[in-house]
Design a protein around this nucleic acid. Structure first.
Lengths: 162, 162
DNA sequence: GGAGTGATACTCGGATATCTGGTGTCCGAGTTTTCGCGG
DNA sequence: CCGCGAAAACTCGGACACCAGATATCCGAGTATCACTCC
């Protein structure tokens, strides 16, 4: 079970776009350059986030992506689900209904206990991600990054948005 | 992010072996037959569980697998980790250190906030699976299955162990 | 009848193919900007 | 100098290759069983 690498990219992009603010936008190429990742592939994930209503796209020169809503209203879970999909990690194949001890379908009224447990665990995972917004992450970045790093990032952004 | 199908198989096999008890064992072919899954592939996962110290293998005719410990002492998490691996679903690539705003390594003293959050979520997921043992699952099966289904399963087991 | 011995059948264990989904890339559709021209 | 228009450049969006890991399978190593033979 491995989470798509694009999830990390999407989250970082979301945080960066949060710093950019609602009145400007960054194109895929800049976002990729800033994070040191292949732009052509990053585009795929940004499109997914756009379809999910997390990002807004602006066409033409000077365009790019920006957050569709305030960063405080976007949860990490939304980003993860937009990129990695909304379905649970565990897909119950109902193998209890197969083999020599199989019974007619109507006798399986209680859901598979393994399935239930897995769903519970999955929900716990999602709940943790739901608790945190992009704004929260932005705050942690500001609090945790070195002053020089923040200044360097601000300088880069100023240069790009110019 | 999709969990290996083998996890479901391994858990069901663990539960079934719990019912078999510590004095008998079931070979791969019987376990596969009971669950209606390809035996050659199931073998791979049973081997993994054996390596992890969850199952014990008995060679030769009449041999097979049995639980290495009481079912109450085996958590679902153990089985999942034995088959799917022990590492977190999220692998932080530290992309914050790349690109134009990168800083010397010593300036990154605080762990990446995204990484921390993902680890927290992962731990919540694992904690749910740690809470439940194979014995718990066995109890739920007994409580939830239809009487006819239980009898049919018992009959099959009696036939196989004969 | 009982013990020893060899063959046999059955089991696990790891090494080997195949295939789906993630990874990576590309080009076309659409829009904004910009430059040139005319008034 | 100002307005208009066409061209150009830049952007997103979806369609197209490639590759690693999961899926699926096989055969060899090892052992308990069983039958046969001999005492």
């Amino acid at each position: 079970m491995k989470l798509s690498e694009g999830v990390e990219w999407g989250l970082h992009c979301g945080v960066l776009l949060g710093f950019v603010g609602p009145d400007a936008s960054l194109p895929t190429a800049r976002l990729a350059e800033y994070h040191g990742v292949p732009g052509a592939y990053l585009a795929k994930h940004l499109q997914a986030m756009s379809r999910a209503g997390i990002l807004e796209s602006v066409q033409g020169p000077g365009g790019g992506y920006r957050l569709a809503r305030p960063a405080a209203d976007i949860t990490v879970l939304e980003v993860v689900e937009a990129i990695d999909g909304r379905e649970s990690a565990f897909q119950c194949a109902e193998i209890r209904r197969r083999g020599p001890s199989a019974r007619p379908a109507r006798e399986y009224r209680v859901p598979c206990s393994i399935h239930s447990l897995m769903n519970r665990a999955d929900e716990a995972w999602r709940e943790e991600l739901r608790r945190v917004s992009l704004a929260d992450l932005m705050g942690q970045v500001v609090a945790g990054a070195s002053p020089k790093g923040l200044e360097q990032g601000a300088r880069w952004m100023q240069e790009v948005l110019k």
